[in-house]
């Protein structure tokens, strides 16, 4: 099977030596995913713009996908890829409903600030 050169380089350590450390250890991927998740959750906690909060949730979902794919690669198990596919589908559904909610709230309140959305009925 033909693979692009970048992929071949990534898979190379696994191919020629079993005992050798991989070029990029698992902990680096996990550290990047943790930092992205932290950025996303800080966005959800500290920002009050509804659209920015939705985008921060997308960053968090992306970080979780990265963790799934990292473990899938290091345990040579394809299940992580399938779960990533499902997470992407759920994120699409979440974005569609979330943006529809933001539009409905904007029509009602003329604002997208979450501090002004504290009433169950008005």
């Amino acid at each position: 099977m033909l693979t692009p050169p970048l992929l071949a380089a990534a898979a190379a350590p696994a191919a020629h030596a079993a005992a050798q450390q991989p070029a990029i250890p698992l902990s680096w991927y996990l550290a990047v995913a943790l930092i992205l998740f932290a950025i996303g959750s800080i966005g959800v906690l500290a920002r009050r713009n509804a659209l920015t909060v939705l985008m921060s949730v997308e960053i968090m979902l992306n970080a979780v996908n990265l963790v799934f794919l990292a473990f899938a690669r290091f345990q040579a198990d394809m299940t992580g890829h399938v779960i990533t596919f499902f997470v992407i589908a759920v994120a699409a559904a979440e974005a569609a409903v979330g943006l529809a909610l933001v539009m409905g709230l904007f029509r009602h309140k003329k604002a997208v600030n979450l501090d002004q959305m504290s009433a169950l009925r008005s």
């Binding site: 970048l6 990534a10 990292a70 699409a92």
Partner: peptide
């Protein structure tokens, strides 16, 4: 792509 998940990389760009 570095994680040998090139299908997921394409899906990420297409869907996200």
């Amino acid at each position: 792509v570095l994680l040998v998940a090139h299908t997921m990389a394409i899906l990420q760009i297409l869907v996200y």
